[in-house]
Computed example of a mutant assay.
Amino acid sequence: MFKCRHRFHDILIVSIIFFKKEVNGMNSIGQTIKMYRKMLNLTQEELAQKVRVGTHTIEKYESGEQIPSNQTLLKLSTALDIPASELAKTNHVNSATTN
């Protein structure tokens, strides 16, 4: 039971951080991916393996150099255990950088 409570606490903290960044206009899909990846204690390499992309691709997503495709967003949401809508709402489409 303690583990569940701890997980709820982590989610609450992440949600507060996410909300603050969104209010300040500072949130991006890359920041969201990184935040949830770190919350799950995953390395970029581990996330890349789960999503079946290269580590360099995850680096590009997190740095904002590249935006994941809708298909990749679904894979990321599954790997990070969050709703795809959570990622999609931060996905500012830029056709020049989509994967």
Rank of each mutant, 00 (worst) to 15 (best):
F2P: 04
F2G: 05
K3D: 13
C4L: 13
H6R: 08
R7S: 12
H9R: 04
D10G: 00
I11N: 08
L12V: 04
L12D: 04
L12S: 09
L12H: 04
I13F: 08
I13K: 10
V14R: 08
V14W: 02
V14A: 11
S15D: 10
I16K: 02
I16T: 08
I16F: 06
I17Q: 04
F18L: 13
F18I: 01
F19N: 09
F19W: 08
F19I: 01
K20I: 14
E22R: 12
E22M: 15
V23N: 09
G25D: 10
G25M: 05
M26R: 15
N27F: 11
N27K: 11
S28C: 10
I29L: 11
I29C: 02
G30M: 03
Q31N: 12
Q31F: 12
Q31P: 00
T32R: 07
I33G: 00
K34I: 06
K34G: 08
M35D: 02
M35N: 07
Y36R: 11
R37A: 02
R37V: 00
M39P: 03
M39H: 07
L40A: 05
N41F: 13
N41G: 03
N41P: 03
T43K: 14
T43A: 10
T43V: 05
Q44I: 01
Q44S: 10
Q44K: 15
Q44W: 06
E45F: 00
E45D: 15
E46K: 15
E46Y: 00
L47N: 01
L47M: 07
A48H: 13
Q49C: 07
K50T: 02
R52D: 10
V53M: 08
V53Q: 12
G54V: 00
G54Q: 09
G54K: 12
G54E: 09
H56S: 15
H56T: 15
I58K: 03
I58A: 09
E59C: 14
K60D: 06
Y61N: 01
Y61K: 03
E62R: 10
S63F: 02
S63T: 15
G64I: 03
G64M: 03
E65A: 14
Q66G: 06
I67Q: 08
I67W: 01
N70Y: 12
Q71R: 14
T72W: 03
L73N: 09
L73A: 13
L74F: 14
L74I: 11
L76C: 02
L76M: 04
L76H: 03
L76Y: 01
S77F: 04
A79V: 01
L80S: 07
L80W: 06
D81K: 12
I82N: 03
I82S: 02
P83E: 12
P83G: 09
A84Q: 11
A84E: 07
S85V: 14
E86F: 15
E86R: 12
L87I: 11
L87H: 02
A88M: 14
T90L: 12
N91Y: 10
H92T: 11
H92C: 12
T97S: 09
T98M: 11
N99D: 15
N99A: 12
